[in-house]
Design a protein around this nucleic acid. Sequence first.
DNA 1: CGATAATCGAGACGGTACGTCTAGTCTTAGT
DNA 2: ACTAAGACTAGACGTACCGTCTCGATTATCG
Lengths: 211, 211, 211, 211
Amino acid sequence: MADGEVPTSTRVTGGGTRTRAVHRLGPQRNPEIDRTILETTRTLLVERGYEGTSIDAIATEAGVGRPTIYRRWRTKAHIVHDAIYPSIEPADTGPADLPTRIGLLVSGAFALFGQPAARSGVPGLMAATRSDQELRQRLVTEQLDPVRAALRHMLDEGIATGKVRADVDVDTLLDAIAGAAIFALGVRDEADAEERAAALTALLLRGITAR
Amino acid sequence: MADGEVPTSTRVTGGGTRTRAVHRLGPQRNPEIDRTILETTRTLLVERGYEGTSIDAIATEAGVGRPTIYRRWRTKAHIVHDAIYPSIEPADTGPADLPTRIGLLVSGAFALFGQPAARSGVPGLMAATRSDQELRQRLVTEQLDPVRAALRHMLDEGIATGKVRADVDVDTLLDAIAGAAIFALGVRDEADAEERAAALTALLLRGITAR
Amino acid sequence: MADGEVPTSTRVTGGGTRTRAVHRLGPQRNPEIDRTILETTRTLLVERGYEGTSIDAIATEAGVGRPTIYRRWRTKAHIVHDAIYPSIEPADTGPADLPTRIGLLVSGAFALFGQPAARSGVPGLMAATRSDQELRQRLVTEQLDPVRAALRHMLDEGIATGKVRADVDVDTLLDAIAGAAIFALGVRDEADAEERAAALTALLLRGITAR
Amino acid sequence: MADGEVPTSTRVTGGGTRTRAVHRLGPQRNPEIDRTILETTRTLLVERGYEGTSIDAIATEAGVGRPTIYRRWRTKAHIVHDAIYPSIEPADTGPADLPTRIGLLVSGAFALFGQPAARSGVPGLMAATRSDQELRQRLVTEQLDPVRAALRHMLDEGIATGKVRADVDVDTLLDAIAGAAIFALGVRDEADAEERAAALTALLLRGITAR
DNA sequence: CGATAATCGAGACGGTACGTCTAGTCTTAGT
DNA sequence: ACTAAGACTAGACGTACCGTCTCGATTATCG
């Protein structure tokens, strides 16, 4: 959710084992509408592209008033962000070896940016991010930082066990993964995301491996 | 010139070996105006970002009428394209070794996307490219293909001399270079382009080198 | 009360001659809230004019929910009507001579339309009256008809005693009084209502007097 | 015209007897569009009333873009003003006696406010006039003042020849004429404007006549 | 006394209109 | 034919109200 300043309902742990929803006064925002709007946005991104996805069009197509959208998101870019990026963190890869873990991370990136809606939306989002500081902040803290931390962790473990060169730069690796995925899928419009992910994984693994 | 559909003067091959410029009636398009418009566009991209760089604003700022701009470019994206991308091809690196040549190519990419105007303009351009086939064509043939060919050539030479792995994919390499540069400079807004270029060069060289 | 469609209590004629108040369950509408809303409306009419007096603004300013207002009045125009027009009929002037009685009537009109809230509200109300038949009905039966009847009565008496010309048209007189008051106070925004009332009274008395 | 700040063409008296139109650069506003918009406004006022006559509706119905309307008029009230009030001054009544001249003036007022569009538009315009100082100014100087001056002139002549009482107040007379016309036609929605005009003329003439 | 039902403040909702801004086309008048 | 200026249609933007609705809390009446 873009703003989330005033959560509609908050879970409060009662005296015993019960959990109770504490409501504010007045009606709650209907979370079903949030889902409808985001779903409609994804559809329109695919059908009409980023520019063609006007807030008017989303509202009409979702059967919703324009103010209902503005109540939830400040700008189109925030809607597209929520429509494309998952709010859940990447599943833990568990106890796997480095190549597998890097491979999963790269595949994850290519899967994310390979969604039809993301191919259309991400470039537009990147442009919007440059002039909207709040959006940039969300992108960095919600998307970039978690991945960066996961990558940092993998590299540190690899360096400790001597499998990874000590001079590997995490940001360069991140740029290569995210950038390549966006460029291949969003700009060059490559069809097969998994194939590209595998090729990049191989290239980067050789690039970071010691010896 | 972006479109050139209506060239001001046309080269006509005369009867023999002579080539002669045939002028239309009336005054010719003033090429000084082209330069002023592109320069103004670069300035506005830096000052107001891609969205804020309206054609109205360019016209006003350049002291030029709007039709004067539309006579030269079809859309804002075409102007931004011409304002950012050099029309000249990259100078041949001559007889240098593979690391040097790859390094120069990566540095070139980071220098290009590190221009202040490019940082703002490229993401917007990427978005526009998705819905404008003509623009995509120009981007591919004028920018991407030459670089791809140069890279292909380097790799082939390296493979022939056994310095480069035979299974290296040129598109993956291109995605990693262009994508990483755009992501680092346009999205993450990294300040030092050269430093990032050096780190990526090292990573990729290790990734493609045989043994 | 404006509409009274859903009266809080309803008089029901019992079996015999008794009349009994049948109360609904639950709390009764708080008449204090009615007064607060009308008072707030008058204040807002003066401070922000008719257009600026939104129902939202009234609700906020009166510290009341919007449905609380809609439960009582159908539209803004009905609220303004009740805020401006007194629900009590004009006190009978008793046994006075014609000039005095006409003078009192004119003064009454100028006093009514000279209220700060009425100056702002009446023109807006006139506009609303054109498209709201129910409002028009209330205006005619509650405001216009009583005055018209009183005027009719005065003229008839005057005609009977030979003091008033027999051909005086009551509607023309009514138009001249109400119209002039609204025009002078609501449109021209004349400050001194009493002075204008006196001048108009003199003019009209000469107009209707026989000989 | 509402704004007229930048007249499209200005008549300039040349050296001799010649008159020359000095044009600005660029195209002129199309006066045909002005007429279409005002005509459409009148139609909508009759069909949908003042509130229903949205600028959107005018634009759509007139086949014109919304900015084209805003380029000419600041608010809906200004459009309605121009749609209702004639820009020409009342025709000179020539050498007629006082009753005839007053009669013509009153008839003129009733004819003006009796137009179908004016019946709907004038009350709304009165409301808007209270919060728009520019509009009020136009109303006063363009409509009220000329009539007031004409009336003043008639009364002065009448007073000089002993036909009119010296104490007749021109504003009171004006209020009675304009107010009665608006009230009879715009509020009470009287059908026969001429009949009401004749009755009011008779009443007022008796009111102002000496003896 | 407990169930019932209407009140109240708060605010979400689908709509509609507002007034502004931009895009891209077309027209005018001057060079 | 070009230029600057700007009018024009089209349509998106983000805001403000409207009138209806639902929510949860409160409170007076009635069984």
